[in-house]
């Protein structure tokens, strides 16, 4: 996994509450293989229904941060939702809140979900609604999210373990494989309820 240190981008705004993973990637594409197919599957139904859907606007090409609402990624636990976002080029999400399984899946894939404080999120949405197109700077090492043009800043707020893995480009598998002795000991003594 590539390490995540900092990035700068303008935002792909996709506001509204409770955007579920069936919308992010419809079930029939969950087993799509390859970056291109996954990127094409991202928000496929909404794009099919609306040629002006935000992802397909020319100015959005190359952007790496999506601005979302509350409870983003609710519903199905399909990890393909994170894969499709990554495949399209998204590396971080700024939202009010995320479904726990979804944000876990994002982190497994080096995609950073950032829950913005209520006031900052409100100000951001308002600015976007008024036509602003601000640049975001995320610095994971300094634990900082900044919108210099808007005077908005907050911390990334990631727990230390997840942050460390992202900074070092490590995945959880190696951490777990390193716990082998502990796992063997647990198996030998037998789970207390079994």
């Amino acid at each position: 996994m590539a390490s995540f240190r900092h990035l700068r981008s303008r935002l792909v705004p996709l506001l509204g509450p409770d955007i579920d993973t069936d919308q992010i990637i419809p079930a029939q594409y969950v087993n799509a293989a390859g970056t291109e197919a996954l990127a094409r599957a991202l928000f496929r139904r909404l794009r099919d229904q609306n040629a002006r859907f935000v992802l397909d606007r020319p100015e959005m090409a190359g952007r790496t941060v999506m601005l979302v609402g509350s409870n983003f990624g609710c519903g199905s636990s399909r990890e393909a939702a994170a894969w499709a976002l990554s495949a399209w080029g998204i590396r971080a999400l700024i939202g009010r809140s995320f479904n726990a399984t979804f944000s876990g899946n994002c982190l497994q894939n080096g995609l950073l979900p950032i829950a913005a404080p209520l006031e900052a999120h409100g100000a951001l949405c308002e600015a976007i609604g008024a036509g602003a197109d601000p640049e975001i700077a995320i610095d994971l090492e300094r634990d900082r999210v900044e919108f210099t043009e808007l005077g908005i800043a907050f911390s990334v707020g990631l727990e230390p373990f997840a942050r460390e893995l992202l900074l070092r480009g490590m995945d959880e598998l190696h951490y777990l494989l390193d716990r082998r002795a502990e796992i063997e000991a647990y198996e030998t003594r037998g789970g207390p309820l079994q």
């Binding site: 636990s77 399909r78 990890e79 994170a82 399984t101 899946n105 497994q108 777990l176 494989l177 716990r179």
Partner: peptide, 17 residues
Amino acid sequence: VIGTTQVLHALATQCIL
């Protein structure tokens, strides 16, 4: 409730974080 990467973890280590 796990994701596919955690399926890998459970297959390889019988554990998840």
